[in-house]
Amino acid sequence: MFPRGKKRDTNEEIIEQIILKKYNSYYRMAMSYVHNEADAADIVQEGAYKAIKSSDSLKHVEYAETWIYRIMMNEIYRRLDTKKIVSIDDEVSAELQIEDTYENIDLKRALDSMSAGEKAVIQLKYFEGLKLEEIAYVLGENLSTVKSRLYRGLKKLRCEMDNYVMKGDEHNAG
């Protein structure tokens, strides 16, 4: 498929093509953590830069897609570490009112009760279509950790949403 060039050039080309195709996926993933357009764009830009720059270190080009996800996730986590999570949450509520026009604040609350890791597993699996093995690689965890996060995450989502329904009923009653 990529007949020309040495292996290393091919690596760079393939990684570049994947990034150009999937940058919105990385952006969404970043947005789901930082809730801020400037920070999310910064994460994607930084991740894209690092992926290209270190493209030679990718040994098996067939894993390029998951490899880039891994770089992006590291960028996201790094950002979360440097910024206090609390302050990010403050920004969220301020920004939510502007950005989200429909009332999904309870979903938001459900998401906030999930750990960063649980969110990552659910989003990578259901929205980005990665296999559990790939997710384990992206997050640098073993498979059983990924599986238990997936179940915990799903459980939390469901619990919180049940609350959502109940609260809605109360409103109607009152």
């Binding site: 969404r28 764009a41 989502l157 949403m161």
Partner: peptide, 22 residues
């Protein structure tokens, strides 16, 4: 639940300026 989640998750898209910067 996941659909609602997904719907919200998929909303953000990068704008031309940030794509260019990337």
């Amino acid at each position: 639940i996941l659909e609602l989640y997904k719907e919200q998750y998929e909303k953000p898209v990068m704008n031309d300026k940030t794509v260019f910067e990337m």
